[in-house]
Amino acid sequence: MLQLTNVSTYYDNIAALQGISFAVEEGEIATLIGANGAGKTTTLKTICGLLRPRSGRVLFRGQDITGARADTVVRAGIALVPEGRRVFPQMTVWENLVLGATVRRDRSTVAEDLERVYAQFPVLAERRRQLAGTLSGGEQQMLAIGRALMARPELLLLDEPSMGLAPLVVEQIFGIIAEINRQGTTILLVEQNAHLALSLARHGYILETGRIVKAAPAAELLASDDVRRAYLGE
């Protein structure tokens, strides 16, 4: 579904990604893990059009989307749940969700999808008239995911969904992510909790200073002594 080939992305003259290549298969959960500053968020921003790579190609379903505008990428079928959730705090839950459907042409089914998101996240239905900034961290994460789902993505990019959340809330969020995948949405997950990410994913890629240093089935990475010492704190 998604293929990056020799992608390099820079901030001014600083190379954040240095020729990375990897693929995400349709229907799977794939994960990028690595230390802070390794280039994980830069990778997602490059895919979804928020950053333009200096070289390399990004293909989605065989279509070249390298450097395409962000709204074009969303229309193609990719949605991002950004790090830190980035909900609009002075807008209601309902307004945040409806914004997720802004680029859609099939306006007649937006209300139907809104009800589907409410069924997936009942707390959002209960708080639909509440300002997003007054929600808890876990509720804001649910809202950010729901807003992305309103774009009807085929590929969902998740950037650090567990960040700043209590363990029980993290467990709930990852249960929701697994269910979204079971319903047919392909997922590329960037996550600081490497053990949790690899437990959920089918394939894993390890980023170090802008380079992919290891790629393998997630179960194989979980079983690797080197990976466990370097990224799982064991």
Rank of each mutant, 00 (worst) to 15 (best):
E208L: 02
A216Y: 03
R57C: 15
H195Q: 15
A101R: 00
S136D: 05
L165K: 10
L2I: 08
Q3Y: 03
R75A: 09
L80R: 06
A178E: 15
A70Q: 03
K214A: 15
E234A: 11
A68M: 09
L221Q: 00
R229G: 13
S136H: 06
M150L: 05
V169M: 02
E139H: 02
I206D: 02
R85Q: 04
G100F: 00
A70W: 06
L59M: 04
A144H: 02
V110N: 08
R229T: 13
I78M: 02
E139V: 05
I14P: 10
R211V: 03
A35Y: 04
E126M: 04
Q120G: 14
A148F: 08
I180S: 06
T72E: 13
V24T: 07
A70F: 06
E234D: 15
I180N: 01
V7N: 00
L157M: 08
L155T: 07
A38I: 03
H203G: 15
A151R: 08
T102L: 09
L168Q: 12
A223G: 14
G34L: 09
E234T: 10
V87L: 10
L59A: 10
M150E: 07
L59Y: 06
G210W: 01
F22P: 04
L207W: 01
A151N: 10
Q130R: 11
L131A: 14
S136F: 06
G100Y: 01
R129T: 10
L156D: 00
I145E: 02
G39W: 00
L99P: 04
V74S: 05
G146Q: 04
V103Y: 02
A151Q: 10
I14H: 10
F60R: 02
L50N: 03
D159M: 12
M91S: 07
L221T: 05
D71R: 06
S55P: 08
G77Y: 06
R86S: 15
G39P: 04
Y118V: 03
R107N: 14
L156F: 02
Y231I: 03
V58P: 06
E83S: 07
L97S: 12
L97G: 09
E28F: 05
L165A: 12
G37K: 08
A166E: 08
N96M: 14
